[in-house]
Design a protein around this nucleic acid. Structure first.
Lengths: 246, 246
DNA sequence: GTTGGAGAGTGTCGTTCCGACACCTATTGT
DNA sequence: ACAATAGGTGTCGGAACGACACTCTCCAAC
């Protein structure tokens, strides 16, 4: 059987001939709090991995783009919208989900801590423990609140520890050549706040003076004229400035 | 219906309840020739996009990992194996394939030009034209041989122009902090060859002296003692050295 | 209301890294 | 023999960065 035109070919095409995997999205929603990276996790109420903590996610609708599926998961499962979202990596180990073959497209999202709604459903903020330096990569650990500190390590469902590790690796890499830290802060912020965000992401202290110089020279920040309050001399509040065409 | 154990849940799980997309892989196999980036393309013999040029690819088997599917596509469609392969990005626009919903996981592979077999099937080497600078991103153009130069622009199937653009963007980015150029060269190579590869990838000339200093100081290269031949003074042949644990 | 602490912001200095240039060396081609 | 071609070394100047010293501006304790 041959088809001379693309139309006749498409009319005769049978999409059900091959066994197809399920496709899902999982979103690592990252934020910075108390100079550390946190993520939003949901405790699973159903099998598989009942009781373990999982990233917000869901199956991709048959007429829905991947980005739309990620935004929907964030809205429905985490209660947030209008945040920075970026595709990370696709995980497809055949046995990663015991139910059936599920390929998951992992996303990273960044949000100001003040906008995270941990009251939504069974959502919990968990502190990330990164057992490697630089951009080595690998799985990370998650700790939930226990008493007055985040030191109770919890089990992560599926390969979500690996997904979170990929998110940390990605954001560390992006920070070198992209002004992405402001996505984790309110609209107006001080240089100190921005440096704390960078330090939390990179997991190491940064030189204060050099950080100031580099940031101001980048042209990405715009002084607002307003001043912060709190202990010490009030600091200039900056706003992220969309890079003008060069 | 509740399931107290994970086993009973899995036994009752019906994987066919949701409509599932097809999942494929597509591989941008890149090489450097005459100080320019090239890729391997296959002219499509069937609809859709019959006659257009496409990346080697194929559907992901139901029990096959994504990396395995990419390696299989390279072996069956391009006739190469044992090359550097890295996952790039997953493209899932609902209408990207007119047949049915197909989500494709794009891969990038790098190979020494001497190892590319353009005789395999209807495989053709095509020169890449990158209409943007730096890591701006976007689609790229492909040109096949016409007479004695590569200047006949060809149509690329599906969103493969975008996939190739993502590959160029990725390899440009990796080159800054990863010694990846040697993947496009034979085992032993001169600093000049390596610099030409970098220039082809980045699309701009590089400072000769600075390049030498940076490369030798990186500790990634090992002198073999052998010398190249050809016009001019013979050059030291280097080998890539696996970075020792620090 | 004076004083000390905390943190913002500025200026300077030395080191390191990189682009640029000069110059020498080794081989091939005529 | 000599030019052409290409590898390899040394040096210099500017830019970027870490480090440090110092000043400024608020809050709070006394």
């Amino acid at each position: 059987m041959t088809h001379d035109t693309e139309e006749s070919f498409l009319a005769a095409y049978d999409a059900s001939r091959y066994a197809r995997p399920s496709v899902s999205v999982d979103v690592a929603l990252l934020t910075v709090r108390d100079a550390a990276l946190f993520t939003l996790l949901l405790q699973r109420e159903r099998h598989p991995h009942r009781g373990a903590f999982a990233l917000p996610g869901g199956f991709v609708g048959i007429d829905e783009s991947l980005d739309e599926a990620a935004a929907r998961a964030l809205r429905d499962k985490a209660g947030v919208s209008d945040v920075f979202v970026e595709q990370l990596y696709t995980f497809g180990r055949p046995t990663r989900d015991p139910r059936t073959r599920v390929i998951t497209v992992a996303y990273m999202a960044l949000i100001d801590e003040a906008r995270v709604r941990a009251d939504h459903d069974g959502a919990t903020l968990a502190k990330l423990g990164v057992p490697w330096e630089g951009e080595t990569g690998g799985s990370v650990d998650a700790y939930v609140e226990h008493g007055d500190s985040f030191d109770e390590r919890v089990e992560l469902a599926f390969d979500h520890a690996e997904i979170l590790g990929t998110a940390v690796k990605r954001i560390r890499g992006k920070l070198r050549y992209t002004p992405i830290g402001f996505q984790l802060l309110p609209e107006r912020f001080t240089l100190r706040q921005l440096r704390r965000v960078h330090e939390a992401i990179l997991g190491r202290p940064m030189n204060k003076d050099s950080f100031r110089r580099t940031m101001l020279a980048s042209g990405d920040l715009e002084a607002t004229g307003a001043r912060s309050n709190g202990p010490g001399r009030p600091a200039e509040l900056y706003r992220f400035q969309k890079r003008s065409a060069v």
